[in-house]
Amino acid sequence: MRVDIRTKLLIVAIFSVLALAYQDPRTLGIILLLNLLTVILFRVPLHIFRGFKGFIYMYAALMVIQSFFVRDGEPLLQLGSIYLLTTDGVLYGISIMLRFFILVGSGLIILNCNTSELILALVKLRIPYEIVFMIQVGIRFIPVFMGELQNIFHGIQLRGVDLRRVYKRKVLKVYVSIFSPVIYSVLQKAEKLSILLELRGFRKSPTRTYYRDISLGKIDYVIMTLSLIITAVLVYAVRH
């Protein structure tokens, strides 16, 4: 099934808005279920989710922290007069976790798309080419900077800094050390890129042609209509 990227963008926008608009864990659970179905339908490799396992612990910790601030609900765990865990705190923590997974799922739908098609879709959505180009450059350089960052992490450890044993007061110093070469590299690449763009006639002509083309087919209109209907039904059901 070949779906136009604009259809995917609409679905991602719907999921993102719904995830931020609702707070009830049951509603967010339904949205996540629909999100997962969409992810499977668009054949996004599900093993990517395994990389987010670590976040579950983070949200478990967040739930506990929330309980200190969210005083409502029944106490589940308390130390004297201090509530360590409350029902509302747990629900709030679950909501944040569900929201996060909805946003990750939506992001994966886009990440699984062809970058050139994504850029073309944004241009066709009448977003100024300068802004689209910045997005394109951002996407293009993410793996480069990730690789560089990893090299720096390795380099710093091979020069005797055990990152696991750095004292708290020195953590900031070490991270400044790590990010200095990255910032330098970003500035250097940006400067080179701007020169190269000028040399290759960037914005010389007001109109620009594209080798690829994208077009909306029948299946796109069917999916878009269905998505909007499902969203309307969900919003109506939650309200009543």
Partner: peptide, 11 residues
């Protein structure tokens, strides 16, 4: 170890 790009090792 000295990597290909020395800038990555200057902190």
């Amino acid at each position: 170890y000295v990597v290909q790009n020395p800038s990555q090792m200057l902190f």
